[in-house]
Design a binder for these strands. Structure first.
Length: 484
RNA sequence: GGUGCCAUCGCCAAGUGGUAAGGCCGCAGCCUGCAAAGCUGCUAUCCCCAGUUCAAAUCUGGGUGGCACCUCCA
């Protein structure tokens, strides 16, 4: 297995901290709004990584967090006059549903900020004790970036003494421009929001928490360091975990800060390998609210089968920037269709347990920093060969068995072709229409039997009018929803 | 302004020193009552210039053109 390490900027052979085991932590969503295609891309990339690692025989422990303490959540709660928990529960739930539609497996651990307050407070205290953090007179606690000689080693940035890039008014109480908040004290703007009580523990519905540093809430970067240490970290090890992943934008400052916190607050570095997935743009523009081109997953899923989106978003290398267009998505659907057509062709037949050359090659391609393009080229070649042989030798039992085994392997490792092929091709057609189409097909078959082609062609036109295409096969007549 | 990434057929996209994968689209053919699906065949010397090398899309330097991060962000 080879992984491109985005900190060392080279492809490295993957060697786990502990034999046959992998610990993976990925930065998940902040649950204050619907997930967009970018969230989908990140979740899909690391879902694929887990599958490939598992196929290589590793026992993977995968954690992806839910950020449920955040300024944006507070803002939304105030705007909509709702309880914080109502907001976070709603978006956490929709995130889960949408991920399931994309075929993204649940992570083994899904830690939430609200459930790990103690671990975060403990880490802050340690950082203060070790001289890496300091409280201010306003009750905030900052990480002292100048106390960490390795700060900026992750993003390879140069400390800019002139602060030329400063665009946001910073608190004058910070010692250094790059210092970031570990604890944010309660400010005016959050008055009126509920406060948790020590006695009941930390109430998730609250947004303001008690701490030795005063009432407030943890800074964003802190949760990942604290939760990794609590849920995943290997002690007495040079690194807390094997792999840390997330979107390309998180490298700085988020991951830089996480790394600093862990480095200074524990006895090891954060991660041995860092992986960052590229961005999703829409028609060559970055998705953003100001441009009004955010493409929410829930909207995409109304129009397309989740698996088509999965195929499309995974079809190019995870590190490249991804430009979403409907045309390319339609192309991806055609490619996925081919998998399902072959599956349909072999429907109901028995599968072998053999390991094929194809499987070895596929795993090899994916084990090379997840080279999906090469993997898909192998898939297309396998499909073509299988179809070719089936065209000339339909009785080839071993080929059928092996082909089914190959398709099953594609399902497991890539998550493509997992549905019933007949249902897949009828996505978006309601039951009523299905019945009508089936009736017309019966009528057409009768007309065909009588060689009344004029009538059968007329019936076909009626069927096509539903936006479907039909195909006559030795097994009978089938229909599919037409591609647009 | 700082840092970094990218530039391969009409479109999408692998390949990072040994002579250009794959898909979509298109054209021709096989199959089919006709279709659809499937199959076969055909389609690029890799943004420009210079250099290193027996050999470069792949390395170096210089251009040109995109993009990202530096502020919340997957």
């Amino acid at each position: 297995m080879y992984i491109y390490d985005s900190v060392q900027k080279i492809k490295r052979e993957f060697i786990p901290l502990e034999k046959d085991k992998v610990s993976l932590y990925v930065c998940g969503p902040t649950v204050y709004d619907d997930a967009h295609l970018g969230h989908a891309k990140s979740a899909l990339v690391f879902d694929l990584l887990v599958r490939v690692l598992s196929a290589n025989g590793y026992d993977v422990t995968y954690a992806r967090n839910i950020t449920d303490i955040d300024d944006k959540i507070i803002k939304k709660a105030k705007e909509q006059n709702k309880d914080i928990k109502e907001i976070t529960d709603f978006y956490t739930s929709s995130f889960h549903k949408e991920m399931a539609q994309l075929g993204v497996a649940k992570p083994d651990i899904e830690p939430k900020a609200t459930e790990n307050l103690e671990a975060m407070i403990e880490l802050i205290q340690t950082l203060i004790d070790k001289g890496h953090a300091y409280p201010t007179s306003e009750g905030d606690v900052y990480f002292d970036t100048h106390s960490d000689s390795e700060y900026l080693s992750l993003s390879k940035r140069v400390q800019d003494e002139d602060d030329k890039q400063e665009r946001v008014e910073s608190s004058s109480l910070k010692k250094n421009q790059t210092d970031f908040a570990l604890w944010k004290s309660v400010k005016e703007e959050y008055n009126g929001l509920p406060v948790s009580s020590d006695k009941d523990g930390f109430k998730p519905s609250s947004v303001i928490y008690d701490s030795p540093f005063g009432k407030g809430r943890p800074g964003w970067h802190l949760e990942c360091s604290a939760m990794i240490e609590k849920h995943l970290a290997k002690q007495n090890s040079e690194f807390a975990i094997d792999i840390h992943g997330g979107g390309a934008d998180l490298l700085f400052p988020h991951h830089e800060n996480e790394a600093a916190q862990t480095r200074c607050g524990t006895n090891h570095a954060l991660a041995n390998y860092w992986m960052h997935n590229g961005f999703v743009n829409i028609n060559n523009q970055k998705m953003s609210k100001s441009l009004g081109n955010s493409f929410f997953l829930k909207d995409a899923l109304k129009e397309y089968d989740g698996e088509v989106l999965r195929f499309y978003l995974l079809s190019t290398h995870y590190r490249s920037n991804f430009n979403f267009t409907k045309e390319d998505l339609a192309t991806s659907k055609k490619r996925l269709d081919k998998i399902y057509r072959l599956k349909k062709r072999l429907f109901g037949m028995t599968c072998s347990n053999d390991t094929t050359h194809f499987m070895d090659e596929l795993l090899k391609a994916l084990s090379d920093d997840m080279n999906v393009s090469s993997a898909l080229a192998l898939v297309d070649e396998m499909i073509s060969k299988a179809n070719e042989t089936l065209d000339s030798a339909d009785k080839h039992k071993q080929l059928k068995k092996d082909t089914l085994a190959n398709l099953a392997y594609i399902e497991t490792i890539l998550g493509f072709g997992v549905k019933n092929p007949f249902e897949y091709f009828q996505f978006g057609i309601d039951a009523d229409t299905k019945t009508k189409i089936d009736d017309l097909i019966v009528q057409r078959d009768e007309a065909k039997k009588e060689k009344n082609f004029e009538a059968s062609d007329k019936l076909r036109d009626e069927i096509l009018a539903f936006g479907v295409s039909i195909m006559d096969t030795p097994q009978g007549t089938f229909w599919e929803k037409s591609n647009i």
